[in-house]
Structures are given as structure tokens and as C-alpha cells.
Design a protein around this nucleic acid. Sequence first.
RNA 1: GGCCCCGUGGUGUAGCGGACUAACAUGCCACCCUGUCACGGUGGAGAUCAGGGGUUCAAAUCCCCUCGGGGUCGCCA
Length: 597
Amino acid sequence: MLKTHSCGQLRRTDIGSQVVLAGWVHRRRDHGGLIFIDLRDREGVVQIVFNPQKSPEPYQLADELRNEYVIRIWGEVVLRPEGTENPALPTGEIEVLVERMEILNKAETPPFYINKDVEVDENLRLEYRYLDLRRERMQRNIKARHLVVNFMREFLNNKGFLEIETPILIKSTPEGARDYLVPSRLYPGSFYALPQSPQQLKQLLMVAGFEKYYQIAKCFRDEDTRADRQPEFTQLDIEMSFVEEDDVMLLTEELLTRLVEGFFPDYKLKKPFPRIRYAEAMARYGSDKPDIRFGLEMSDLSDILVSSSFPVFSRSLANGGCIKGIALPGCGDYSRRSIDELTNLAKDSGGGGLVTISLDKTLNSIEDLTMSAVKSSAARYLAVDEVRLMAKRLGASGGDLILILAGDVSTVNRALGALRLEMGRRLELARPGELAFAFVVDFPLFNWNQELGRWESMHHPFTSPREEDLSLLVTTPEKVRGRHYDIVLNGYEIGGGSIRIHKGDLQREVFHILGYEDKEIDDLFGHLIKAFNYGAPPHGGIALGIDRLLMTLLGEETIRDVIAFPKNQNARDLLFGSPAPVKDEQLKELHLRLETS
RNA sequence: GGCCCCGUGGUGUAGCGGACUAACAUGCCACCCUGUCACGGUGGAGAUCAGGGGUUCAAAUCCCCUCGGGGUCGCCA
């Protein structure tokens, strides 16, 4: 080793030690007669001192030092002179008197600050990711990631799980996201696909008798990115045999609880994790991944407005839609402009025609409500009794703003849910430091795809239907509930899983409902069904999105800040410059020809 | 593919029709400085205001297009 100690670890107890340190010049303070350098390595920063009287040669060399130079120094750890201690630094009681120095490597001036936490254009950060990662925040994030993943491994190892790797080159699956494809050199015209998740593989491991499996699994989905989504991401993938929903959920709950309490003790979290039925989540929060850190819950107002003369309302109800609202506390004095903003927000999510009702501040009791205390874009269509009933249901009082949307159920839920989230943010309703985990349960197994005119799996086709709903499979698929559970955290879906189908004939039946012919089923999923026919145990599992979990735990706003080398929004890697063209020979070997446009 | 937002010295920002010969902070370079720790002081270099076109007597500023980036809808079994 080129060093005997880490910079950041030196303490009072090291006083008197001769040490060799190596690291980066974090900051330099040249006093003319005396040069101080903050020397940084992975463990932190220590002050080293160049004194011309004591060591003239290194002092002269130190004149050349600039930020991010890599140096090695020999010296003695000494107590700092009284009054010059720096309590802000863990190493602030001591310093190292340099007796000899070697410059291991020079550095160009970095394109952005490494020793300061300043917002920098993300392009630039990604182009120079190796420098970005030197910054304190990124070091913290990547280290936290290690600790979290390490904890997960230990936790599961101690519970008898086996970590098993599964292939990255597998087969394209018809349902789900777009696959990343890898052309085969040996088989012209054939392709591998990168796994969207090791779903089928882990089920096969259950058939293979491993009973408890986990993996830190890279997953790939070729879809557009978001703040919490990029082409490749990491899941803690878990599968267990001979289990029911509660076994998996309680294990997950224990894992997450102990993780947070052990590594992020400043957070408050509610135990046990609440369980919310899907239908309820949609009705109350307009989302299957509700942020339950705050209220602003939606209520159905259809019955109150059933005979409303307002065309938007009556039309929606006539078309089988609904009318729902939320109440925004203290927003009754919103300007026209602010209200327009909300209207646009609703439109962005597909919800047209936001109706707002401002209740005057001076209104003491909803019972005393008169139309003079009501300001609304739809005022002339609203009866005072209707407003009163709506206000009551929504828990609104004087000074509040009521938002109402009408339309088909899913659009209203989505748009009003988006408004709820945005207003929750703006009004800062979520208490800081709160982690609101919740399980969402009782999902329907299928949903009807209007465009394609067929049933689709709500999650994936391997989810088991509930036993008591089996008879509905053929008659009324929409009523079949799946044995699926999602886990959400502060409005993010951080995981999901289910008890799987473990019998070949049931699996085949589900594929039939999804519109597959036997031939296709055999081609695409024959391996799985065949495996089920050789004594597959009942099994189930879950997958946790490690990036999203970390993002929330670390208070970051994008998944990219917890990934060492992320892709940008356009799925490009700005450091490597990928994706990139390849040589013609490579294409030829792969039997590929580019379309010339 | 749609919508919204952003692009000004290395970095972060200000300026939003004329007083801009583009300001501030920091970084960078030189010199001074022996107890600083975001050291301090003096001086200096550094910007075709993302690119192109237009409107105007006059454009960093207004309009259009392109490029790059971010957010979001669609998409994400």
C-alpha cells in the first residue's frame, strides 16, 4: 500500500505517529510562509501542513499543488496549536506535518466544483461522472447503496436464502415492456433478450427445489425514462416456496423496517405497514401507488350532483362516469392565475374542465353557507345545498378551495390524483422525515385493453388468481382478483410481488384468457408449463426496486443520483457516448444490415 | 410522438428592447502574506449571450426553426 492510514480516520489518538498518506488535494490555503492542504481520500479530509523552516523541500514542491492533484506524503501526526482546532472536521483536532511529499499525478482544473455542493448541469456531471462521484454527496449515496445492499444480503442469508445468479442473455417475452435485444452470431436472425426481470427463472428455481432464493438482479426495459426510471435498474429479487401472501409481505416489512431503523434512524415510519386495497387506493388517492403521508383525499360527489344542470356533470354521469373532488385547505383566495395553473395541470393528466369552488374566508360554518360565500366557475349551475353537501363530504370549510373533476372514472382518478400530489407538495403537507410504506393488495388479475380488444394481465401472467375467484375466470375475468401485492413508499412503487401459479393447467388457462393459442403458449412458455408439470411447489415472491428505495431514503429526486453510471433521459451514457455505431464487420458477423434511410 | 420548462465567461447566477464596451460570486493565472480551514489582499485573463433565421433605427432581451438538456403524458407484463 502506498499509505499507512486513511486521511479521514486520523484522530487525537494517532498523535505522535509517523504516517504515510495518499489522496487528493481537496483545498489549498497558501499563507505565503505556510501552506495548508486539505488532503482527501475515501474516508474524509485531514489538514496537512507544509512548513518551510521544518521541511523546505516539500514546502517548495507544495507551491505547485493544485486542486485534485494526487499526492503522497510522509509526516507526523501532531496536535494542532491551541485555538486552531476545527470542530467542523472529524480530524479537526490534529494535523500532519509534512516531511516529504511525492506528486503521484497532476490534475487539470476540474470543470466543476468537487469541494463544494453546488448544483451543476447534469450533462456535465454525467460526462465527467468520475469527477462527479468524487463529490461528497455522491460518495455518500454510493456508499449508502453498498450498505443497503449488503444489509439485504445479510438479512436474507440469515434467514436461509440462497443467492443465485441467473442469465442476462435470455429470451424475449411477448408481454410487458419492450425488450433489449442481443443478436446471435451463431444463429442468424435469432436474438437473445436482456431480462426485464428474472421472473420465470426464479420460478424455475422454485421448481428446482431451492425454496428460498434471492438475487441483486439487473433488469432491463427499453421504455422511455423518468426521474425514477432508466433503461437498466436493480431489483432485490426474492422468491420462496410453500408460502402465502403474508409470509412474503411480513418478510418484506421486517427487512425494510430493520433497514430503516438500522441505517436511517432519523426517519419516522409507521408499523405495521398499512394495507390498502387497490380499489380503495384508486378511489381515495387516484393512484395505485398512493402517497399517504398526507390527506387531501378524493371523494365521490356523483350522488350529490346526480340531478345537476351543469352539462359537464350530467354528461359525465350519463356516460357512466363519475364526479369527484378534493378540498385544498386555505386555498380559497387563489387567484385566477393560480386556478388556471391547476386547470392546466388537470389537463396534462387528461382531465378536462376542472371546476373550482372557493369558499369565503369569513364563512364560519358550512351550515350557514349561502351562495354569496361561494365563488365558482360553475356558480350559476350550483345549488347552495349541493355545495354544502360537497363541502361537508370533502371536509371543506371557509377559506378552502374545492376542486371537482367529472369524466370517466379512470381519467378522473388519474387527473385528480395528480392534482392531489402536486398540491400536497406545494402545501408541504408531508411531514419531513416521514417514510410512508404501504402494501397495496387485492388487485384485479386482468384489465381490458380497449385498443387491442383483449384482456391483459394487470402485472404479469404468472400471478395466481385467488382460489375463491377461480370459477370467475372464464365467465367474468374482470372480477377475478390476483394474489398480488405492491409495496409503495411516499408515492413511489418500490416493489411488487405475488403468489404465483404453480400448476400447468391453470397457467395455460390464464394464457388462454389473455388470447394465446395453445401453439403459441407452447412456443413461448412451454418450458415453464412443462416445469410446473413436474411437481412445482406453491411459491411466491417479491422484487424491490433498489434504486427507487435508495432515492427516497437518501432524499434524492432522481434515481440517477443513486446510480454510479446512469443513462440520461434519452437513454444515453454521456461518459462513454453510448449507444454508438459499430463497425461493419461486427454487423456482418451478427447477420445484421442497417436500414438506409 | 404530444405538452411544459431551461440553455449568458470554467462553474453557479444577474440582466428580459437602448444607459451592455454584458454584471456578480466563485474558479483560473501572477504577485504578496507563518495558523488558516469557503484563509485574506492586489492585479489580470476569461463570454461569437446554445446554433441559425426573422422583426426592429436598435436584440442576450421579442418571434420562428434547429440542437442539447430536464420534467411529464403516452409507454413502463
